[in-house]
Design a binder for these strands. Structure first.
Length: 442
RNA sequence: CGGUGCGUAGCGCAGCCUGGUAGCGCACUAGUCUGGGGGACUAGGGGUCGUAGGUUCAAAUCCUGCCGCACCGACCA
């Protein structure tokens, strides 16, 4: 992408209404623009990142044989009246009336709707188990939205739903999703702590939150830091024994939200050196709620004895739009954003030191033209001053920058700058390709 | 929903107390000089001062309602 063709308008100054670094940086880097309290437009740069994260999450689900589908944002109130949540959900639910005066709502979540769908289809124990997910915009009319995209009213969420014939089977689904989440967050380059949690208005007995540690987080957590040593890498999510072993190894160690915290148990079960008290951002939340919605919405099947039984279900959410902010919180410095390679909208930033220099201009043009199909390159082709280009590229957080100036070009050299370390290496033009592939995974 | 504060150019702000030609920095346009970390100079363009009403010869400024935004609290993914 040539900057001259890109709808990207960055700002030198911070917005006055932003508090969190991630919020300031998202506005400054032209990713989002606020529309109303807790509602944002995603500009091209922001949408690229959002889509990258979504892609990672979707791929992991699809690989695990979880089927992607799509439910609408607007829902009929009927099923919510059946489940009792039309009133119970409270003012956070945005209620709408259509022209026929029917009650509609902008979905805050989809348990009712998915249960209504599967209750028509899953009729026999032979149809179970099943897992479905979608990525869709949600609306929760928060009392006080804040922190930009981190806690907004309209947000993009991946929600998955599991359907099983009994507790044992449902528990396996829960463990599998637990492991899948750990893999997803690891892929995104995030250190995420799974903690026991309250299930809130979703309901149900078994629930875990996934917390990205951050000083700016809103959740307080207590955990045994030995759980960080347990790796998900080698665990096969489809192998019941393996995944349960992993789940138990992790959840046997103390780890919970402040709601669930018991100081006595913490001290009794966790050696002092391993006790960790920390804050973080909730980026995922999973629930097993048994037959709660099946009962309310009549989702039953015929078991192998010919008897009717209720479907056991669970739901599993990841805040996709929140992750954009959360990832920035975990990856920035005083210059700007530092995107992990998995979510960076571009792989390479290309900077021409002087546009009026024929030597560097020729090189940049031909490099870009020859490589734009191999790499995602953001080429700053503006006739701007070098300082502006460098600062701008740092702000945008693209992992690797190629800085092209005549001074180095006459010696057949380019500057390759690593955004994260700030280190600049002179690299021979001939060796550029191998330097990049040796030092970076694309 | 309670408490506090704010709304003036695309962004960040001053002016308001004490009413009298709407200002500054950044950004933008043109030109000149510059040229390795948001450069300098010159000349420009852009505002019904959130909105509706009131007071007044005169309102960005004083008064009232409404709308919007932020922060703190309670609540929540």
């Amino acid at each position: 992408m040539r900057l001259s063709n890109f709808y990207l308008f960055t700002k030198k100054e911070n917005p006055s209404d932003a508090y969190l670094a991630s919020h300031k940086l998202m506005v400054r880097s032209g990713m989002i623009k606020q529309v109303a309290t807790g509602i944002y437009s995603w500009l091209p740069m922001g949408l690229m990142v959002l889509n990258k994260i979504k892609e990672v999450v979707v791929e992991h689900h699809v690989k695990s044989n979880i089927n992607e589908m799509l439910m609408p944002t607007i829902q009929s109130a009927d099923i919510w009246k059946k489940s009792g949540r039309f009133n119970d959900y409270g003012k956070e639910m945005l209620k709408i009336k259509d022209r026929h005066n029917n009650d509609l709502l902008y979905g805050p979540t989809n348990e009712e709707m998915i249960t209504d769908i599967i209750s028509d289809d899953l009729k026999s124990y032979k149809d179970l188990p099943k897992l479905l997910f979608h990525v869709q915009w949600k609306f929760r009319d928060e009392v006080r939205p804040r922190f930009g995209i981190m806690r907004c009213r309209e947000f993009l969420m991946k929600d998955a739903y599991s359907f099983d014939l009994d507790y044992d089977s449902a528990f396996f689904a829960y463990c599998k999703m637990f492991g899948l989440y750990m893999k997803i967050f690891k892929t995104l380059g995030l250190k995420v702590i799974p903690v026991r949690a309250e299930s809130g208005p979703i309901g149900g007995a078994l629930s875990h939150e996934f917390i990205l540690e951050s000083n700016e987080g809103e959740s307080d957590i207590y955990y045994d830091n030995r759980l960080l040593n347990i790796s998900i890498d080698q665990v096969n999510l489809d192998n019941k024994a393996e995944i349960k072993e992993y789940y138990e190894a992790v959840t046997n160690l103390y780890s919970c939200t402040s709601d669930k915290h018991e100081e006595l148990n913490f001290n009794k079960n966790v050696p002092k050196d391993n006790q960790k008290l920390s804050k973080g951002i909730e980026v995922g939340h999973i629930f097993y709620f048994g037959t709660k919605y099946s009962e309310l919405l009549n989702a039953n099947f015929t078991n192998n004895n010919g008897k009717e039984a209720l479907i056991h279900s669970g739901s599993y959410g990841i805040g996709i739009s929140r992750l954009v902010g959360a990832i920035i919180e975990a990856n920035y410095d005083e210059k700007g954003i530092i995107w992990p390679k998995e979510v960076s909208p571009f792989q390479l930033g290309l900077i021409n030191v002087r546009n009026d220099n024929q030597v560097s201009l020729n090189f940049c043009e031909s490099y870009y033209n020859n490589n734009a199909s191999n790499f995602k390159i953001l080429y700053d082709d503006r006739n701007a001053r070098i300082g502006e280009k460098l600062n701008n590229m740092d702000l945008l957080g693209i992992p690797v920058q190629i800085i092209v100036g005549e001074k180095n070009l006459v010696n057949q050299n380019l500057e390759i700058k690593d955004r994260k370390t700030g280190k600049v290496n002179l690299v021979n033009i001939e060796k550029l390709q191998s330097y990049l592939s040796d030092n970076y995974e694309f």
